[in-house]
């Protein structure tokens, strides 16, 4: 279970290294989906009412709760904008990504 949480891509050098049966050996965390994003959510923690709705509706599991406040994991956020749309006090802004 510990190994599953590593963000490492598994590459087999030959078929001899492959397991006998097709089984999952690692998580998809190596795939940094943050690169798909055009707009990024920015949480204004001053106005946050800590309702947890952004966390509840995030399809990429990229909003995490720390010290009772939501934070965005920009490694995996795909920038869909559901959190900004569903926030009841509109304290999440979608900001254009800079190159």
């Amino acid at each position: 279970m510990i190994r599953k949480k590593e963000a490492k891509k598994i590459v087999f050098q030959s078929e001899k290294e492959m397991p006998m049966m097709p089984m999952s050996l690692g998580s998809m965390l190596y795939n940094k989906t943050g690169a798909w994003r055009n707009i990024r959510p920015v949480v204004d923690l001053e106005n946050c009412i800590q309702c947890g709705i952004c966390w509840k509706f995030c399809p990429d599991m990229s909003i995490f709760i720390e010290n009772e406040f939501p934070y965005v994991n920009y490694d995996y956020c795909k920038g869909c904008g559901i959190c900004a749309e569903e926030c009841p006090v509109k304290c999440i802004a979608m900001v254009e990504e800079e190159k």
Binding site: S27, M28, L29, Y30, N31, P59
Partner: peptide
């Protein structure tokens, strides 16, 4: 987990 291959705003993942 994060890093899945769903499109942006996918309902199936939720």
């Amino acid at each position: 987990g994060s890093g899945n291959l769903a499109c942006q705003g996918c309902g199936a993942t939720l």
